[in-house]
Amino acid sequence: MKKYERHQAEKLCPVSFHFMTEWRYDMNRYCEVSEDCMVIHIPRELDHHEAGRLRQEADLLIGACHIRRLVFDFAKTEFMDSSGIGVIIGRCRNIGYYGGSACAKNLNGRLKKIFLVSGLQELMREESGKTGRKETEKL
């Protein structure tokens, strides 16, 4: 993490930041926070094995950083099964409890099919645009 990003993160999440840095050493980081918006970069393959780690990280940050807007960025994603659907629906519900909203980004043809079969497209709108990283450049 760059010095600037670390500074920003400490400013945003003063309470949980030290815990987060300890905890993320042996984990990939999926989430990117800026103000009340969080982009979740969905990994290349999202199955039951990967879903647990993503859920843990996302829930910690949604609570700690007072997130109101969730963006699921599927730019890297090549595979997702119903376990992935479960974790996405779960995070949508959680952000709903906090009065926030969620959207999806960079869905390829395959993922659109998965969204269609699962009915997830009814639950969440798709946002056009290049990459989720843009979201955080407002800072």
Partner: peptide
């Protein structure tokens, strides 16, 4: 958080 969509 199983979605219940495995068989589907």
């Amino acid at each position: 958080e199983r979605s219940g969509m495995g068989f589907a």
